[in-house]
Design a binder for these strands. Structure first.
Lengths: 210, 210
DNA sequence: TCCAATACGTACCGGTCTGTAACGTTGTCA
DNA sequence: TGACAACGTTACAGACCGGTACGTATTGGA
């Protein structure tokens, strides 16, 4: 009776190279991520997360020690995602830090006008949790320090007169895009970011008038 | 028996010109403001507000229809405070919009390094409440639109080539200062804001090379 | 002297929050 | 067959949430 080809597969049959269906803990993390980003981490309770993820609270708490740690894991993922697209933009112009940064601003401006855009999850989390020891805030602060460092490295590579100042100014523009997009929507000041970045880079690298 | 000067005043005796002691509703608003700014509005419950204000919940709810409206009232006050110091900075340089804006950046940079600085309450509230119809968010959005308009007015007055673009770029810097101060503390990128603003204004008003 | 308005407190409501305990079920691999 | 991992089910704890029904003291005026 057990034919080789059963019409209805009794076992899900992992099939090795087939895309395994995500485990409960993964579903929880991705579902939480979507909800956290859209509504903010304080606005979403664990009950809603597990119910939407098709899981249960004990499963959540077996995978994450607390909601705060789930938030931290979500932010880690966001940070990795940031670096992926930051370095992708930089990769378009090897050896040309000016063009690399401008490519990033291009990408940023494009993202900031997409529907549902709500800025940088890590920045938002730092606003939501002012307490210095919150696990989520720690992830955010570390990430932003890394970004500051990366920008400095690039402004040094372009021989800016004051690379640290230029990097910080660019960082201000980036963070400004993040929050002002939430305030103003698609027609906000974010569209001015790339031009401003260009002008600042220009001002810092233009040959000094004798 | 009722002498004109009683040793112990039975009545508090308003005394007309004496500084009246604040009513419970006022105490609630100011106390809520401090707590909201320091910890965020979602982190503070009404119980803590009234207990620290030496009042009770019914008093709160007689003065404000809901916690959200209390938040909105707090943000209104913050907005007024902003305009007070914005126009104070502008008032130092009548008729000179460039100097007015730079004076504001001076003031902003000074504030951003003060202990306990946590950025702009209105920006923070917009991050905390993405829902478009939240009373607090409405106050924030309106305020920021007003700021954008005011900046445009000033960049027009300085005959910038692209006044709207310049105003938006300045706004990005301002919002960047607000959030990055929370991320990085007193040694953050905020110190680069004034120089960047100066460079951008310069670039937008420098006589065009023929 | 009495009344009405004002200003406030006591005590409580139902609901939601994060987090946990105890136990059952299923699939896998040796 | 048996051990183990992964997950679900149910129920609950304890704190905290925003919000309210109702009682009370004080005051100013008729």
């Amino acid at each position: 009776m057990t034919q080789p080809s059963t019409p209805k597969a009794a076992k899900p049959k992992p099939a090795k190279d087939a895309p395994r269906e995500p485990k409960a803990a993964e579903r929880i993390l991705t579902t939480a991520g979507e909800l956290f980003y859209r509504e903010g981490t304080r606005a979403i309770g664990v009950d809603e997360i597990v119910s939407r993820a098709g899981a249960t609270k004990p499963t959540l708490y077996r995978a994450f020690p607390s909601k705060d740690h789930l938030i931290a894991a979500y932010l880690e993922g966001q940070g990795e995602g940031f670096w992926t697209y930051f370095e992708a933009a930089a990769g378009k112009h090897p050896g040309d830090p000016k063009a690399q940064i401008l490519a990033f601003f291009d990408e940023l401006g494009e993202r900031a006008t997409r529907p549902g855009y709500r800025g940088c999850a890590l920045t938002n989390a730092a606003v939501e949790y002012p307490a210095a020891d919150h696990p989520g805030r720690l992830v955010s602060v570390e990430h932003k320090q890394g970004l500051r460092e990366r920008l400095r490295q690039m402004t040094k590579a372009m021989d800016a007169r004051k690379p640290k100042k230029l990097a910080d100014a660019l960082l201000l523009l980036i963070e400004g895009v993040y929050v002002s997009s939430q305030l103003f929507g698609p027609d906000g000041p974010a569209a001015a970011a790339k031009g401003a970045a260009q002008a600042l880079i220009e001002a810092h690298t233009r040959p000094e008038p004798e």
